[in-house]
C-alpha cells in the first residue's frame, strides 16, 4: 500500500498526467480509499514539489507541470471523496488584483492550496475589489487571497479588505495578501488577516487561520 502511494507522490515530478492518473486508478482498484490516495499520495507529492521549488531545485515550468498532473488526478479523485462530519473543508477565493496581470505566482499559490486539499476558486487576474467579495459570497468562502506584483496595484488590496470587513458573510472570512512587493507589516496594517512570503507559506497560513477560527 505504501509503495503505490509513494509512487503517486513521485509521479507528479514525472510530468505525465496520464501516468499519475493510471497510478491513482491502480491505487483505488487495490482498495485504498480516495481520501488516503489524496492525502498520502497527491498532497504529499505536491508538498515535495513545493519544498523543491522553495530551495531552487526546480523552477516555474516544473511546478506548473506537476500542478497539471495534480489537477488532472483531482478530477478522478474528487467525486469519490465522501464528506465526513470531522472534515474541515476550506474554500479559498484567489485572484490577482485590479490593474495587475502578473498571475504566475498567484497560480502557484492556488495550486499548492489545491494540493493541500482546499477548494480553490481562481477568479483570474485584473480582478476588481468588489469581484473578490462577490465570489466569496457566491462560493461561501473561508478565505479571500489577493495577489499583487506591482507597487501601484498593491493599493487595491486594502480596498478588498475594507469591503470584506463591511460585508455580511455567513462565515468569518479571512483576507490574505501576498506577492513580491508585499511584506507582513504592510499587509497587517492595511487590513489583511495574514501574509505569507511564498506558496508553501500560504498553505500553512490558511491552516493556521482556519484552525484558530
Amino acid at each position: 500500500m505504501m509503495d503505490i502511494l509513494k509512487k503517486i507522490a513521485e509521479s507528479l515530478m514525472e510530468f505525465e498526467p496520464e501516468d499519475t492518473i493510471a497510478l491513482v486508478n491502480e491505487a483505488l482498484a487495490s482498495g485504498i480509499d480516495a481520501k488516503t490516495v489524496l492525502n498520502e499520495g497527491l498532497i504529499k507529492g505536491m508538498d515535495i514539489v513545493g519544498q523543491l521549488f522553495k530551495t531552487n531545485e526546480i523552477y516555474v515550468p516544473e511546478v506548473t507541470m506537476a500542478a497539471e498532473c495534480l489537477q488532472e488526478a483531482l478530477v478522478v479523485i474528487k467525486p469519490l471523496l465522501k464528506e465526513e462530519p470531522s472534515d474541515v473543508k476550506v474554500t479559498v477565493v484567489i485572484g490577482t488584483v485590479e490593474g495587475d496581470v502578473h498571475d504566475i505566482g498567484k497560480n502557484l499559490v492556488a495550486v499548492m492550496m489545491e494540493g493541500a486539499g482546499f477548494e480553490v476558486i481562481d477568479i483570474g487576474n485584473n480582478v476588481l475589489a468588489q469581484t473578490f467579495i462577490d465570489a466569496a459570497k457566491e462560493h461561501n468562502a473561508d478565505i479571500i487571497a489577493c495577489s499583487a506584483l506591482l507597487t501601484t496595484t498593491m493599493a487595491v488590496m486594502p480596498e478588498v479588505a475594507a469591503l470584506a470587513k463591511n460585508e455580511k458573510f455567513e462565515k468569518d472570512v479571512k483576507v490574505l495578501f501576498g506577492g513580491a512587493p508585499i511584506f507582513e507589516k504592510w499587509a497587517l496594517e492595511n487590513g489583511a488577516d495574514g501574509y505569507a512570503e511564498d506558496a508553501s507559506g500560504a498553505v500553512q497560513l490558511v491552516k493556521d487561520l482556519v484552525s484558530r477560527k
Binding site: F15, V60, P61, E62, T64, M65, E68, D103, I104, N107
Partner: peptide, 11 residues
C-alpha cells in the same frame, strides 16, 4: 503567455 510557454518547455 509565459505560463503556457513554460509548460511547452517541458512537454
Amino acid at each position: 503567455g509565459v505560463e503556457t510557454f513554460m509548460k511547452w518547455m517541458i512537454k
